[in-house]
């Protein structure tokens, strides 16, 4: 049986690789590290760390209680560090137009039916279902979420700050 240890990253301890350029521009690779991004982000700031035309992946620092969010399409949240609850509400009235893409930040908890909640830890992936409103709650030490979604009003793009720019 192998005794090799699996290495995870965390906010407290991570190593970052690099683009070692031979004949290229490192910016072409938009290279970043989600733990480093989350270590300098505001709580629940949705910082794009990947962008493929309209699609994005966002790194979020999960600390305390988030605003309520909603989205017209499915999203997915992968917990990379910490312990985070996700609480869901089915709004009585859709807070987001059906054809709008990306996450929308709500001003308050919408009126509606409680759908339930999940508690996720490192390595767990949660569905953020289309049409639901949801809120993240991290009571303990800050965590990190990786959200698969579409570029939206709440997405923050600050590529020059987070990516390797020099060889």
């Amino acid at each position: 049986m192998s005794t090799q240890k699996t290495y995870f990253g965390s906010l407290e301890k991570y190593q970052k690789g690099a683009v070692e350029v031979l004949a290229d521009d490192p910016k072409n690779y938009a290279f970043s590290n989600i733990f480093e991004v989350a270590s300098t982000s505001k709580p629940y700031e949705k910082v794009a760390v990947g962008k493929n035309l309209k699609y994005v992946i966002e790194a979020l620092r999960a600390e305390g209680t988030s605003p309520w969010f909603a989205c017209a399409h499915d999203e997915a949240a992968l917990c990379m560090d910490g312990e985070i609850e996700v609480h869901y509400v089915k709004p009585d009235q859709a807070p987001v137009a059906a054809n709008k893409e990306g996450t929308v930040k709500l001003s308050a908890e919408p009126k509606g039916t409680k759908m339930g909640w999940v508690k996720i830890r490192r390595g767990h992936q949660a569905l953020l279902p289309a049409g639901a409103a949801y809120q993240f709650r991290a009571a303990g030490k800050p965590g990190v979420l990786l959200v698969q979604t579409i570029l939206g009003d709440a997405t923050v793009e600050k590529w020059a700050e987070i990516c390797q720019t020099k060889a």
Partner: peptide, 18 residues
């Protein structure tokens, strides 16, 4: 096929492949 770069990725790293 000419070499352009080497990308070293550790846990938590994100990189595009152009």
């Amino acid at each position: 096929g000419k070499p352009r770069a080497k990308v070293v990725m550790k846990a938590g790293d994100v990189a595009a492949m152009p």
